[in-house]
Design a protein around this nucleic acid. Structure first.
Lengths: 200, 200, 200, 200
DNA sequence: AATGAATGAGAATTCATTCAT
DNA sequence: GATGAATGAATTCTCATTCAT
């Protein structure tokens, strides 16, 4: 009665599972979770519809896996950037680079971010994963910043708040295009604000 | 061929249309757009399924209308608060009040906000409406602030940015509950940041 | 419990009933019986949907009435033409005129003919009316022809058969447009055939 | 977005598709196109409603396929009959046989013929298919007749006209039952008329 | 008589999931 | 492990007909 989901050990199987996840990633990005059906995922992955249920317990399970690779695509470039920084770091120099990086990440992943974030409201597991993502980023960045000599007082709150601001701005920047907003001006504001957070 | 949607003139009809919108509002809030079906909306509104299509062209059309009342629920308490303020306004006093208000709004509307925002990624009309609403809020608030003696330079960018920050924080505050975040500390940061935006 | 259908006596009412029938006639012609809904008929007739059921027991009842005015539109011009004929009539002269007339009738009424004929397969009353129409035409024309000196032997069969041929041809002529058919040649064949039927 | 209709290759699948077409054929015959719903077709075919949409894009698509097998049921017995004939064929002997055959075909297929013809008025694709089928019959029969030594002048027009006449008569014969018509007499007329068409 | 809003059964269609091969 | 045909519950939407006003 219990549903057993294959834990693929062989390379062939892992490869196939990844193909499905990637197909899901693409399709969820393109037309959202509800706009995608499992048959299409299978087709795009080049496998049969039946085998999808050999690797995943249900459609939502694919989503969870997609979410995981999405998280990597977000976290990795950020960490890589921070790891390249030299001590002592000059916050005025770093912030613009971070802004550029966050925008870049947002551009690459905006659609899937929307699709996944949309689900976080109605799906506990998805929501949890998102929170975990934020946790990871916040904690790792806090660590790195403190190691580079940034004042550690309330560092988690500072980092988290800064990340919120940057993400929010990246979203504005990539999507909305309100006519009456000068995004160059706004970018300066964002930059100065973040710098101030870490300044004193 | 042509779809005719009743444009209700009489009070009775307007009332009924509103009942449907409210039922939609509630259900979309509770279980999201895709978790709701038109039969349920009708049932909750106390009407037949058929008449739903007398007032709305389709399910999405209900969403669009829900989006509109959502705006009111968001914008009205904010405007009311601002209208009570005395000129010249002391930004240090106002910001904490605004934070409280935004948190309150977020608490009341968090689910529906998610649901609507979710759709804006995959539905052009919903997205357009969303942007329209953001525009309205930004422009109205900008207007009020300038009238109260706030420096009008880059006011749209300032207001929009401040709204992003506040919304982002309210979201954090209401939802996420990261263990390592002291929300009282974060709240102070947010307040000071917003105050700084409008200070000089 | 019984459904009473108003038998309109006053002119205003009769006019209104006719408006509905005409609206039905038009719409059935344009989009067929199943492509038309009663709300549209009412709208086109300039009356409310409710009152339609004051004059007609149901949608099919409108169809029956439409069928009746259709029959008149078919029978009248044919009889008018035959009544103008002079004794002794020259069959070679008459037949081309009849062909022209039948084609004209077909052109004016082809759509509604299709729509009505379509129903005759599944609706006994409609079928009966159609048979009645054929009866009327056959008997009246037979009468006229005999009075004009045409040999009365098997006259009903001759007339009916001739009408079948003419109708069939008119249908071909108005509709089908098979590329490989020279309709001028076919028309000659039809004419000669009909003439032969009445010749000996 | 895209609708993919299975193109069944395996015998099992083809068989199932045929079952659905046959169920459609039966039901359209019995109660017409609008009197039939897809659930009933599925039930009659002994399959689920879902799989119907695996083989057909929609209900109309079933109709189109039914139209095709209808053609076969009409054309095959006719062709078989003609193929048995000896050259040079004696038209006086052939025509009565053809009349019998056409009546037989009509008896077997009258309802479906009605149903299909009905739709051809309001559905372009059905209409096109219908014309295509008539073309096939005309061209094949013309070919056969010429090969059997019949004068090829205006052969398409002759065949088409003869088919119209025969069909029209078969329809009369099978359905209408006008009291005042002696169908034996009429049958003689039809026979002679058709013979005359091909005589000189 | 007249209105047109309201009803609700019924229709077509979709799609996550299962299952025979 | 793999296939893809098959399932059938669920969903959106329509429309002939009724009914409160």
């Amino acid at each position: 009665m219990k549903k057993t989901v294959r834990q693929p050990q062989q390379e062939r199987s892992i490869e196939k599972k990844n193909k499905i996840i990637n197909a899901g990633y693409e399709l969820f990005s393109e037309v959202g979770y509800y706009g995608t059906n499992t048959a299409e995922i299978a087709k795009r992955a080049g496998v049969s519809t039946g085998i999808v249920y050999g690797y995943f317990s249900d459609k939502r399970d694919i989503l969870i896996c997609v979410l995981e690779i999405y998280l990597d695509k977000v976290i990795e470039p950020l960490l890589k950037m921070f790891n390249k920084l030299q001590t002592p770091l000059n916050i005025e120099d770093v912030v613009p680079k971070v802004i550029d990086e966050v925008i870049k990440i947002h551009k690459r992943n905006n659609k899937i971010h929307e699709a996944l974030h949309a689900l976080s409201g109605s799906d506990e597991a998805v929501n949890t994963k998102f929170i975990e993502l934020e946790d990871q980023i916040t904690l790792k960045l806090s660590d790195i910043l403190v190691k580079h000599g940034i004042n550690g007082e309330n560092i988690h709150e500072k980092v988290h708040f800064a990340m919120d601001i940057l993400q929010s701005f990246a979203h504005e920047y990539v999507y909305d295009k309100h006519d009456y907003i000068d995004y160059f001006v706004m970018r300066e504001m964002v930059g100065n604000t973040v710098i101030n957070i870490f300044k004193d």
